[in-house]
Computed example of a mutant assay.
Amino acid sequence: MQRVMWASIAGLCLVALSACVAKWERQDDVDRPMSWGELIALKAPPPQRDALPYGGNAPQQYGELRLPAGRGPHPLAILIHGGCWGAAYDIGYMRPLAAAMNTLGFATWLIEYRRVGGNDGGGWPTTFTDVGLAADYVRVLADYYPVDASRVIAVGHSAGGQLALWLAARRRMPEDSPLHVDDPLPIHGVVGLAAITDLESYRIGPRESCHRMVDEVVGGEPEHVPGRYSQLSPSALLPLGVAQWFIHGAYDSIVPPETLALYADRARRAGDSVVIHTDPAGGHFDVVAPQGPTWDSLVVILNNALLRMPPAGGVRPTSR
Rank of each mutant, 00 (worst) to 15 (best):
E221W: 09
E221C: 07
E221H: 10
P222T: 06
E223I: 04
E223W: 06
H224E: 12
H224M: 14
H224G: 05
H224N: 10
H224P: 01
V225I: 08
V225D: 02
V225M: 01
P226M: 02
P226S: 09
G227Y: 04
R228W: 10
R228Q: 07
R228H: 05
S230N: 11
Q231R: 14
Q231T: 05
L232G: 11
L232C: 10
L232K: 13
S233K: 05
S233M: 13
P234M: 13
P234W: 04
P234C: 09
S235F: 02
S235H: 12
S235Y: 06
S235N: 06
A236W: 02
A236R: 10
A236L: 07
L237T: 09
L237H: 01
L237N: 14
L237C: 07
L238N: 07
L238G: 03
P239E: 02
L240T: 08
L240W: 00
G241S: 08
A243P: 15
A243T: 11
Q244D: 03
Q244L: 07
Q244S: 12
Q244I: 11
Q244Y: 00
W245K: 11
W245R: 13
W245G: 08
F246C: 03
H248K: 00
G249S: 02
G249C: 04
Y251W: 13
Y251S: 14
D252E: 06
D252K: 03
S253W: 12
I254G: 01
I254V: 12
I254K: 11
V255D: 14
P256H: 09
P256E: 14
P256R: 14
P257C: 09
E258I: 00
E258C: 00
E258V: 07
T259G: 00
Y263H: 15
Y263N: 05
Y263A: 08
A264E: 08
A264Y: 04
R266A: 15
R269F: 08
A270Q: 08
A270P: 12
G271Y: 09
G271N: 06
G271C: 04
D272I: 09
S273L: 10
V274Y: 11
V275I: 10
V275T: 15
I276H: 00
H277C: 11
D279N: 11
D279E: 07
P280E: 08
P280K: 09
P280A: 09
P280D: 03
A281Y: 11
G282S: 05
H284N: 06
H284P: 00
F285G: 05
V287W: 08
V287L: 06
V287D: 12
V288M: 14
V288P: 00
A289T: 01
A289Q: 02
P290T: 03
P290F: 00
P290N: 03
G292I: 04
T294C: 09
W295T: 06
W295A: 02
D296F: 02
D296V: 07
D296P: 12
S297R: 05
S297N: 11
S297T: 00
S297P: 00
L298H: 04
V300N: 12
I301H: 02
I301P: 01
I301F: 04
L302V: 12
L302W: 04
L302P: 11
N303K: 15
N303C: 07
N304S: 14
N304Y: 09
A305K: 01
L306H: 05
R308V: 11
R308Q: 15
M309F: 10
M309E: 13
P310E: 10
